[in-house]
Design a binder for these strands. Structure first.
Lengths: 337, 337
DNA sequence: CTGTTAGCGCATTCAA
DNA sequence: TTGAATGCGCTAACAG
């Protein structure tokens, strides 16, 4: 493997001259520039990225970390899409992505800090956002360049999020317009910012429609189909009436679907169901389920662009900025009566 | 950020001594070892991975590349699971994953070669395996350490694969045992090794059962639900009778499902359907679809372990080795009559 | 416009 | 058991 010295020798110049033509310096004669180019060509020379990183003290790679357990894992393609979006702009702007999937948040936090301290990455994209998020706290304290996918409730940071409140509001409004009056809401873990936001939209919609918000209609459970099923079963057992379900995740909507089947409740007539994320699955169920489509790919694109922007303009690092992407309601048979 | 020099100064030793305790050298007195340890602790010192990489000329990071277009993309969680598997062993053995998602194979090939030439990665895991695969050819020619997820039809390489032939054979046998006699086979693009293998299993099963293999019953199309649907529609138009569909991908099975619905063909009575990959989706369709479950997570685990093994034992690099993981038939209503 | 010099932070000889 | 010297491959400040 040829080094910069080999090229210099072959072209009859000094290594720094070669370095300059690599960098595209303009104060170099076209003649030697050409000569160096040919030498590089001939020797099949490619600059060693590690050496460059050491000399310039940045790596042009960003870390992306997330914590998923086996069960929930990637059952929906959300993160895959985010990754695709991130990768496409990374490719375009000549950055690389270092990926790490952890078992839990603790492991994720350690991994982030490690990547940073080892100087393997210039910045980070993280996706966990709990209401009190120790990872985010640590990152702002260490003054690292990072952007969160989601929203930070504690500190002002750079973030890219979808309009959860608005989306949830509209989903609830849609149910109301279809004539449903008693809407159950199945939320994910309450320590997540996303749960808080979606709940807020739901509540706001009811209030704006003059419908009292009842705690009985709100469940907060772990993300899984089974938990969604159970949540509704419990409401039914307790004699709490509901004629629609707004599910903060498609998994819950699936659970609601099974619930309806089990108790022979007809959809959409007796029960309306709407989910969140619009996984491909939703069009294949019986009946097809309405859902809020998230622009996951675009989320990844925006996050990466924001991060690179900050990386290349350190003066912007102090700013906080919240990009919000619109989501769109996909109405299907489960809410069309 | 403290460097090795700072630690050396603080501990009153030379940088090389510090380097030795980092490396865990045993020819160092316990006393100085302790002193250095404390200094590292006090200064919150973490070795710079880039500098280490340059000095030792390897990075402890492996590249994972794949080419996906927007449409097919990650509609199934196969690659997400592979990634989780890879990441879990990478974590354990202190390796990192550099991820790149390309638009097409050409871009993927370029990216692989770039990562290698720039020395950003020590080795590669690739997942494309076409019958004639220029990427694989290039990698063996350049003598790089890599493992393919899938099977290489051209050159002997390190690979981790699932038992496609066997799985397809058993799927077909299952249909036969259920009494289906005219089995249509929907295959992916014929240039993929996986298509070849699954076709082979199907053919073998028919032959072993004394049933003639007819070209009319075999379609080869791009991966999509729509193409699966179209393939069957064409057979029907041409008056080719079939009472079951063996789909080389769940997407095709979904297309077959829609086909059955459209023409009011009852499943499983008039038409049996079985897919490949067992995406979570399959349990939610109406009726639930049988499918061959692939051990995607384990595929990632094995691939990463194999690669790291080779990386740390260069003498093994010349060997080729093919690890084959079993898959399992998930029988559901779509084939139970 | 170009070469010389001095790092970047660490690992690894070679001596002592 | 330890330190000094050298190199990994490249960039950048300073001269000229």
């Amino acid at each position: 493997m040829a080094t910069i010295k080999d090229v210099a020798r072959a072209a009859g110049v000094s290594p720094s001259t070669v370095s300059r033509v690599i960098a595209g310096s303009d104060r170099i004669s076209l003649k030697t520039k050409e000569r160096v180019r040919r030498a590089m060509e001939r020797l099949d020379y490619v600059p060693n990225a590690i050496a460059r990183s050491l000399a310039r003290s940045h790596t042009r790679t960003v870390g992306f970390t997330l914590a998923r357990r086996a069960d929930q894992a990637f059952s929906n393609p959300f993160f895959s899409e985010v990754l695709r979006g991130m990768s496409s702009v990374a490719q375009k702007r000549d950055y690389n992505i270092l990926l790490s999937i952890s078992m839990d948040e603790r492991e994720e936090r350690d991994k982030c800090l490690q990547l940073l301290r080892e100087r393997r990455v210039d910045g980070l994209i993280v996706s966990t956002s709990r209401i009190e998020d120790p990872l985010i706290e640590a990152l702002v304290d260490e003054e690292v360049a990072f952007v969160v996918i989601g929203r930070s409730a504690s500190r002002p940071v750079l973030s890219v999020n979808n309009d959860n409140i608005q989306a949830s509001y509209q989903a609830a409004m849609h149910l109301l317009k279809q004539g449903y009056r008693q809407i159950a809401f199945i939320s994910g873990p309450s320590e997540l910012v996303v749960s808080e936001d979606r709940l807020k939209g739901y509540q706001q919609a009811l209030m704006d429609s003059g419908i009292p918000v009842s705690k009985d209609h709100i469940a907060s459970v772990e993300f899984s189909e089974e938990e969604g099923f159970q949540a509704l079963s419990r409401m039914r057992e307790q004699g709490i009436p509901f004629d629609a379900v707004l599910a903060a995740d498609d998994l819950f909507a699936l659970g609601a679907l099974r619930f309806a089947q089990e108790y022979r409740i007809s959809i959409p007539d007796e029960l309306g169901i709407i989910g969140f994320n619009d996984t491909p699955l939703m069009t294949y169920t019986h009946p097809p389920l309405s859902s809020v489509r998230i622009l996951s790919y675009e989320l990844g694109v925006e996050a990466m662009e924001l991060l690179i922007d900050v990386l290349e303009h350190p003066e912007k690092r102090r700013n906080s900025k919240e990009i919000v992407l619109p989501s769109q309601l996909e109405v299907r048979r489960s809410t069309s009566r």
